[in-house]
Structure formats: structure tokens, C-alpha cells
Design a protein around this nucleic acid. Structure first.
Lengths: 359, 359
DNA sequence: GTTCAGCACTCACTAGAGTGGAGTGCCAAC
DNA sequence: GTTGGCACTCCACTCTAGTGAGTGCTGAAC
């Protein structure tokens, strides 16, 4: 084994490329940094010549080549074909994100957009989340996903039965966080308004103050058979609302950006197909958050059609509790610092906003 | 002017190509029919040789060529370049749709899908419309747009004020068609539950039975200054709900199909960009319906980025009244008979379903 | 032993030439 | 009006260099 071990741990600080070499010597890290940065900007394989002028390198292209070869051996870079430049691998992007990328920030225009957005934001939460996804897409040129707060722990503030027809009523539930849920109920027999009102009041007494997920199925009988039937139908409806895994709402904005990110129309199609599946997306974002990451690159998230994509996630917290998630989807060669900065800023502002309104 | 007028009206019945020549002689119509049908199937320019075997033609390719030249002169066909076959123009598709296409129908599988869908359809209207858009996309391989019923004429069935905080309440309105709308209200001063209930009752008395769009702003004073303030805030909130042009909800399903329909990624991007603009889409569908068309082809609808698309629209009616719109978006070479059949069948079933639930 | 200039080599990309074939328009004959 | 025949057009494809960006290796210099 004649070659030296290039992947050894090396604590030397880097001078220009980033805060931390994190397992690569300073020059290799600087080279990797330059390759990733340039590739993100140009989408073209990067040759050794393009890297020599990068800060922290200052060696000849021959030396850069030998370092690049080592980086390729270690899995940070890849070569589309023998006589081409290098492209970062998922591992290369990962190292870039973890150790090299300096924290980004929005430019003046972006900051103004955010300020303006939250100054003028109005309307109910769903609208707001929908529009937030559009804002994020504009800021980052990625597709933005916003998952609304889960209502699992929210307490029931109001329950009401509204007659829509002789045998049809609508159960309307208001939760403490301002969410409104509804479920229509069809009765076997006609129910008059008085009975409906009576049943509604009983129902309210039974569940007010409890979370929607914890509605007890047993209710004390009133003695009136028909009223009891209405009440138990109401309880069933409530429980079905509470158990609905439908729960988390997803808002996707800027899906057209995916078409701009790839030139293979097949890739675009398969990514869009994923985005249409709410459950898949919500689960994906949750999984990434659960692993403790804020960025999932390429195959890290395990969704095969998104292998050439990276996802930035950011929890939105309201009063310390998680109240939603922000996700940004772009090609692996997306602008990570910008995406992270945008997600953080918008997530924070959104959290503040929700906590103002929420309780 | 040596050439004869080939676009003259001609009443002769066609033998095989369709019910009506509609301004072209029978053979030209048959040729156009064959070209459009084959082009829809193959997406390749169609040459004279491919057409001679089509029903209703039975002449030599030379004759077909001269007819095709005439059809091109009259604007029904186009040639990508001198030595290529012909492609239908928008006008050609229009003629095909109006006079040639025999009414299509869903295949057995499609019919089963529809039946199954409406047998198992459950949940509230929004969910249902969302899932309907997915069904339509599956059936037709187009992008489906479903516009929900407008609540303009629906009468207010219930109004409620729910306290969310000392100075925050939620106004919840239930309409006769089962729609629930909400608006949060922030008060300048704290409002106790009793006052809120009192104000809610007054509000209800004031507006119950009126359409949301016709809420009178004047309310009789109660004498209690603070209650009056709450009531007038409630009225303001109601009127803002009623005047909200937000109104019509749009559900888009199967936008990934657009990526399969075109191979130019630019086209895909611009189409997706349009689809992200709810207001544009809703207005577009409305405009097409208002012109009395059920199909808008290519540049007919005037939205430039959709110039290579066609749109099939179908009103959904509940008890004779228009209660929503179905739209199908595909490339101009989409399968019109199938799209029209699917839109009609699903629209009808959806209408029935909504009328069962609605009142 | 790290760095570097020099060198031979690789291979995608491009341009140009040649070819086949699908398709056309025209025309004289039926 | 219809048709077979014919010359023509021009795209799509293949093949052939030629170009150039990029590589890996090596031996000498620091």
C-alpha cells in the first residue's frame, strides 16, 4: 500500500475556506469547497484549472489534480467520464454543508420581501401557510413545502350541531388554536331543531376542554332515545375527526421551479409525482426531522425518485412546541446557505406570527 | 383566382369519418380526421401515405396530397418543413372537435374507477373535490382542475363567536350548503364570555337566513357599548368574508402529467407557473365557459404560455344551478373524446353527489 | 516528500460530408 | 377529378475527423 491515508483526521484550522476542516486537511477542504461552490453556480463539471485561484488553494493545477484524485477515492467527488472535470457526490455536498458552507443570509431584497410579507399577512392560517410557501419559493428558487401545525394536542373550544336538512346536520368543532373542523352527519330519522340543539349542548358538555384526539366514546344517556342517537352519532363523528390521519395539511408552492432545476423532463415528472402525494411528503419531512438533520442530500432520505434532490427542513415552533415544518426542495446543487437562511428566517417569523394569533 | 373555393359549405353526409362535414367536403373531412387522429396517437407529422387507408378516403396518395395542400391553404393543417408530413393547426383541431370526433366514452376500467370512487367517496366537500381532481387526472392522463361551488348565494345557517383568548375570538359561519368559513377577530379591550355570547346571539339574529354576500352593516344598538363594539366587529368580519374574492377554491390534480406531455422542459415550466396562479386558472375556466365553449384549443383562450395546450371545461350543476367547474388541461394533441367523456361523467356524478349532501 | 512543469492520453462535443428515406409538388395521361 | 410517375427537398442518421478541456503519470526541483 504505497499511498498515504488521505482521509485521516486533521485538526488544522482552515485559513480561508471555512470554519473547520472536519476530517480533511485544509487544502483538500478548500478544493472541495471550490468545486462544490463552482458546480452549484455553473452546473458544469469543474476541472483542476478552475480551482487554482480559489482562496486557500494556491498550488498548481497538477497538485490540485492529485488532491482531487484523492477526494474522488474518498468518495467526495465523482467524474462523469475519464476526461471530464469533477462533480460533488452526495458525500461531498454533505461535507460542504456540515463543515464548509459559511452561514448564509438573505440579501436586502429578500429581507424586504419577508418583512413586507409578514407586515401584510392577514387572513386565516391556511391562507397564510399557502402564501408562505409561495414566499419561500420566491426567495430560494426552490419548491417550498409548508406543513401546518398538528391539532393533536389542541383542546376543543366549541362544538356545534347545525341543521342542513331534515336528516342532515353538520358538526362544527373549533379548537383552541383557531382551527375549525367539520363533519357532516346523516341521521336515520328526521331530527327536529330542538333535539339537535339539546344534543349539541350535551355533546359540548361532554368534550369541551378535551383534545380532539381524546374524545371518550361513552356518554350518559338522556332518556330520550332519539336525542341519544344524535349524541352518539356526534361522538362517532368527533372521534373520526380525531383519529383522521389526514391531520397535517401540506401546502406546496413553486413546484414549477423543479422544471427549471432539471433538464431531463423525466426527472421533473417523477419529482412532481412525489409532490402530489401529500402523505409521502409529510412523512418524508417528518423522517428527516426525526433523524435530527436539517438537510437531506440525494439518497440520504431514501426516496428514490428524489435521488437528485436535496431537502432542507426547518421546524416552526410556537412557544417552544413544534407547530409545523418548512421544507425546501431543490436539486442537490441548490444554494444551501441561502435555503437554510431563508428557511430559518421565515420559520422564525411564521412561528412568532402563529403564536400571536394562536392563543 | 384560379383555385376553387374549398371551404364552401357542403351538406353531403360523410360515410365513415363523422356525422357532419361542416364546411369541408366529405373526403377532405375524412382526411383531416385521419391526420388529427393519427397525430394524436403518434405525435409525429402525418404523411399522405398514412392516410390512404383511412375510412372515407379510398383515393391514391397523390389525391390525398392535393387535398392536404388545400387543407393547409385553408389553415387546417401545417407543415413543420417542406418535406415533412402534416400537423393539425388549432383550427384543424377545432374542426375535429366540432364536426369529426365521435362522442367518446370511458373504457370499462375507467367506468369502474368512477363507480368505485363515488361509492367510496366520503369526507367533506374540499377533500372530495381534491380527490376528484386526482381521479380525473388518472382517467384522462391530463392535469385536472376542479373549482369548488361558489358560496355567493348560500344562506347563512349559523353564526358563532368562539373565544380563543381574552381579546381574541373566532367568528365561525356555517352556510346552507355545508361550507364553513371563519375569521378571527381581535378586540381592543378584553371581552368576557357572557358579552361574547350575547353579541353572537345578536349577530345571528341579524344575519341568519341571508346570503353571506348580503350582510347589512347596520345593527340595532343594544345599549351596552362594549357589546355593540363586539357586534360591529363581527359584522365587519362577516362582510369581509362575503366580499372576499378568494371565493372559489381551486384543486389541481396530476400536474405531473404536463411533464409527460411535452418534451421541452421550458414549456413544462411555463405551464406549471400558470397552474400555480389560482386566480388566473379560475378566471380562465370561467372565461371559456362564458364564451359557451366546452373546449378551448391552443391560442383560443388567449393565455400565451398555454398556446400548446387545450382545455376541456365542464360545468358541474346541482339542481340546475352551476355549482363548480371541471377543467382538463392537456397538450393540443390530447384525446378530446376521452377527455370530454370523462369530464361529463365525473361532472354529472359529482353534481349528483353534491346535491345529495348539499341540502 | 511535497510541489510542479511537461507530456501523453482520454473522451465528450462539434462540424461537415454522405446517405437513406419519407414526404412533397407537379404533370401528363386516363 | 384522379392517378402513377418523377424529380426534388430536407430531416434524421451515421461516420469521420478535429478540437479542447481535462486527466494521470513522471522525473526533477525545492
Amino acid at each position: 500500500m504505497p499511498t498515504t491515508d488521505d482521509s485521516r483526521i486533521d485538526d488544522r484550522r482552515m485559513d480561508a475556506a471555512g470554519p473547520d476542516g472536519g476530517g480533511l486537511d485544509a487544502r483538500k477542504a478548500a478544493i472541495l469547497n471550490a468545486v462544490v461552490s463552482e458546480y452549484i453556480a455553473s452546473a458544469q463539471p469543474i476541472g483542476s484549472q478552475h480551482v487554482v485561484d480559489a482562496p486557500g488553494v494556491s498550488v498548481s493545477s497538477a497538485t490540485v489534480r492529485s488532491d482531487m484524485a484523492a477526494l474522488e477515492r474518498d468518495g467526495y467527488l465523482d467524474q462523469p467520464h475519464t476526461s471530464a472535470g469533477r462533480i460533488p457526490t452526495d458525500k461531498g455536498y454533505r461535507f460542504f454543508v456540515d463543515h464548509l458552507a459559511r452561514p448564509g443570509s438573505l440579501d436586502a431584497l429578500g429581507r424586504q420581501q419577508v418583512r413586507q410579507f409578514f407586515d401584510h399577512a392577514h387572513g386565516e392560517i391556511e391562507q397564510m401557510l399557502e402564501r408562505t410557501s409561495g414566499l419561500l419559493a420566491d426567495l430560494t428558487d426552490c419548491t417550498a413545502m409548508v406543513v401546518g401545525p398538528s391539532h393533536d394536542s389542541a383542546v376543543i373550544r366549541s362544538v356545534q350541531l347545525v341543521a342542513l336538512g331534515p336528516r342532515l346536520a353538520l358538526l362544527v368543532v373549533v379548537l383552541a388554536d383557531g382551527a375549525v373542523q367539520k363533519q357532516s352527519i346523516e341521521f336515520a330519522d328526521e331530527v327536529d331543531e330542538a333535539r339537535l340543539a339539546e344534543a349539541g349542548a350535551r355533546l359540548a358538555a361532554h368534550v369541551l376542554g378535551a383534545p380532539l384526539t381524546r374524545v371518550r366514546s361513552k356518554v350518559a344517556a338522556t332518556g330520550d332515545r332519539s336525542t341519544d342517537a344524535v349524541i352518539s352519532a356526534g361522538v362517532r363523528a368527533l372521534r373520526s375527526l380525531g383519529s383522521a390521519d389526514a391531520g397535517d395539511q401540506l401546502f406546496v408552492g413553486g413546484s414549477s421551479r423543479m422544471a427549471a432545476a432539471f433538464d431531463a423532463v423525466d426527472t421533473v415528472r417523477s419529482v412532481l409525482t412525489i409532490l402530489e402525494q401529500q402523505l409521502v411528503v409529510v412523512t418524508l419531512l417528518r423522517d428527516i426531522l426525526d433523524t435530527g438533520l436539517s438537510v437531506a442530500i440525494g439518497s440520504e432520505h431514501g426516496v428514490e425518485p428524489l435521488a437528485s434532490c436535496a431537502i432542507v427542513v426547518m421546524p416552526v415552533s410556537v412557544g417552544g412546541e413544534e407547530a409545523g415544518t418548512i421544507g425546501l426542495l431543490g436539486p442537490t446543487r441548490m444554494n444551501y446557505p441561502l435555503a437554510l437562511a431563508a428557511a430559518r428566517v421565515v420559520g422564525d417569523r411564521l412561528g412568532e406570527r402563529l403564536s400571536e394569533a394562536g392563543r
